[in-house]
Each structure stands twice: as C-alpha cells, then as structure tokens.
Amino acid sequence: MSEWTKKSPLELEDYVYKEVRVIASEKKEYRGWLLTTDPVSANIVLVNFLEDGSLSVTGIMGHAVQTVEIVGEGDHRVREKLTPLFMSGDCAAYSP
C-alpha cells in the first residue's frame, strides 16, 4: 500500500486528464493519460492513443501502485478526446 490509496477525491481529481507515469509492483512502469481513479479501490485507468488512431486502456490496481508522477499537462485536445470516452450509451439504464 502506498500514499496513493490515501488520497482524497479532490486530490485524485487533480490527476485527471494529465499525462502520468505510474510505478507499480514488481518494477512495472506505465505511462498514459489518466482518465479516472476509482475512489473506492484507488485503481487507475490510463488511456493511450495508438498510431492507428485506436485507443488502449490500462487499469492499474490501487494496491499495486507505488508512485504516480505527472509528466505532462493535458491540453484541450486531449480533454476533448477523453471526456466522452465510455460516457455514451447505456446512460438511461443507470439513471435513477
């Protein structure tokens, strides 16, 4: 367990849409745009834009996260690409 799991939602929100480098257990290293961090499990969801225009999504388990470092500020173009991700469809099914 690291400091990461103790962060408040407002602290976690500061990382959203930023480019981050995550060091995890067993010397694993991940880089990508941070879409969200689950406030319950501290799991991080990163997005990478691939050469062919497609996306790759990586989840890193909160218990395995050692450090998270911001390496780049997201600009509005990144934000525009990330904001609608997963937000379309099924909305009605989960509205109270």
Partner: peptide
Amino acid sequence: CSDIISYTFEP
C-alpha cells in the same frame, strides 16, 4: 484483484 497488477484492453 489482489493477484493482478494491471489489465489492458482496446475499447
């Protein structure tokens, strides 16, 4: 989940 470090998929 405790066995997992990370997972990756293409949406």
